[in-house]
């Protein structure tokens, strides 16, 4: 299947990446080339095959539900592009 310009814009929106009108055609060509190449997987019969999510073969471990860290607000905020007191600051969201 082939992606049209509207789909490219929709994917960009879902990805939260601003795409200028002039970039759409190039992205359409590139993403369609990649997806076209991926289509080769349709040759393989995967009925009755269980999906595998990862390389780790062991079960994920459980741990105690306890606080093991914290009280480091300054460290956490040190890399913030903008802050207000002990909070991250962003443009106004709710009027």
């Amino acid at each position: 299947m082939s992606l049209d310009p509207a789909t490219i814009r929709r994917i960009a929106k879902l990805s939260r990446i601003r795409v200028e009108d002039a970039e759409v055609a190039k992205l359409q060509t590139e993403l369609n080339a990649i997806l076209g190449w991926i289509e080769q997987l349709n040759e393989v019969d995967v009925s009755d095959i269980e999906p595998l999510s990862g390389g780790a073969t062991m079960a994920l471990p459980m741990r105690e539900d306890v606080v093991s860290d914290g009280g480091i607000a300054e460290k956490v905020l040190a890399n913030a592009p903008d802050r207000a007191g002990e909070f991250f600051a962003v443009p106004k969201v709710v009027e």
Partner: peptide, 28 residues
């Protein structure tokens, strides 16, 4: 490009055709 491809193959309606199929290939 990779974020957009990844977003697309996980998006509603395409998950089974791409991502789930890839996970089955992973088993093979």
């Amino acid at each position: 490009r990779r974020i957009m491809i990844g977003t697309y193959v996980l998006s509603a309606g395409y998950y089974d055709a791409y991502y789930l199929r890839a996970q089955k290939l992973r088993t093979l």
